[in-house]
Design a protein around this nucleic acid. Structure first.
Ligand SMILES: [Mn+2]
Ligand SMILES: [Mn+2]
Ligand SMILES: [Mn+2]
Ligand SMILES: [Mn+2]
Lengths: 220, 220
DNA sequence: ATCTATTTTTAGGTTAATCTAAATTTTTTT
DNA sequence: AAAAAAATTTAGATTAACCTAAAAATAGAT
């Protein structure tokens, strides 16, 4: 029995919301993320539990089973590989690829995914810095931290974003903040908590707390 | 209003079945091609007529409207471009790509199609020799003819196939008959109507009438 | 510990795409 | 021009994925 488009999206969202601790995900949180109503979510949860893809006890929230986790990770793998393709091969901007990958991720062919992976040179990260699970389903989250946790004077490398919204990514483009760039925090401005930073040791600018909270960075 | 996956498949099939003359297509022919029952086809035809995509009068068969033709051709364009991608870039065989393209053809993004087209170098034909409609929807069928219509002694070039079944394509692979190869008919064998042919002026073999009927060729 | 507010589930419907069986229309044959 | 056969449509159901409104369960606040 194949999983539908819709089922795959639920599994992927449950995976995202339960984090790496595998916390229980609530019906309302799923309704929010899927843009449906709680009653619809309950229907779907019963079906997914039936298929052995989630652990579900009424009123107790859900977690993925091993089988469900496997499906979710495969969808994530496809999503991220297609994003790499769109950016690296077709020349799309990192702000343009999410919605298209949202569709491509459901194309069912293991053969296709493996060939695509090879064609792209087995990339480890997608255009937003998110790690790409390997063919066996191993997904290792790198230990990046949020820019707000960096110290004044520290030089860090930009490794990913928490917000994937096109408007945020376009804002970063305008600021010259790209994946892999060097960021040095020169000062935290008391007035609005914005940070004065130097990018790639050549230009200086303010970045708002809102932006800092959505940037993942790495020391050294 | 977007067209569904299913609607797009109906339009594409109506296009194929009505041929270049734009003949009326029967309900039963559609039921056959869509692997559904006639009653289901009737339901869908009413809906497509409602949306202005087909001309439909009860019991009289259907034809595409201008709008329907446009949608159908765009789906065909996407199908064939993705097939080129799968063969040229990912290294699939021409016998492996049809089913995958059948899914990819429904990914909705004009931007994506145009970039894919450019990435592939604006190919004019797909891996089976079928012409790829241009971005404006112009589809020009080359005037190839069937190998059975060639004369003894004639040298022709293999330009396409009528049957797209993997088993047929694999059979051609085993016979060394590829797109663009030279075929010289040396003899028609009375016994079984098979043809003795020479491929690329270097190897000789029999090909059955069944095979000849599915090969499109060009003179000189 | 009880009451209140929130969350979740159940009940009952809708729509798209399918089905079978029966009715109707068209086509073919006598 | 009937009668028979074939093609097509209508009628009435089913399934997946959604909905609203109402009921039930859990959590939070006195
Ligand atoms: Mn999706
Ligand atoms: Mn991404
Ligand atoms: Mn299709
Ligand atoms: Mn093709």
């Amino acid at each position: 029995m194949q999983n539908s488009f819709t089922e795959e999206n639920y599994l992927k969202i449950i995976h995202a919301l339960s984090g790496r601790e595998g916390l229980e995900v609530s019906t309302n949180a799923l309704a929010e993320s899927t843009s449906t109503r709680a009653a619809s979510v309950t229907d779907m949860l019963r079906k997914l539990a039936e298929k052995g893809l989630i652990h579900y006890k009424k009123y107790q929230g859900v977690r993925l089973t091993e089988a469900g986790e496997k499906v979710a990770i495969n969808v994530i793998r496809k999503h991220r590989l297609w994003e790499v393709f769109l950016v690296e091969k077709l020349g799309f901007g990192w702000d343009e690829v999410h919605d298209i990958a949202e569709e491509l991720e459901h194309i069912p062919s293991d053969h296709l995914v493996e060939r695509l992976d090879a064609f792209l040179g087995h990339p480890r990260f997608d255009p937003h810095g998110d790690p790409i699970p390997d063919a066996k389903g191993n997904l290792t989250e790198p230990d990046y931290f949020i820019l707000t946790e960096a110290q004044i004077g520290e030089k860090v490398r930009m490794m990913g974003v928490l917000d994937h919204a096109p408007s945020f990514l376009q804002h970063l483009d305008r600021a010259g903040i790209t994946l892999g760039c060097l960021i040095e925090i020169t000062e935290i401005n008391e007035y609005d908590k914005s940070a004065s930073v130097q990018i790639n040791e050549n230009h200086t600018l303010f970045i708002s707390l809102e932006v800092s909270k959505n940037l993942l960075v790495q020391r050294r």
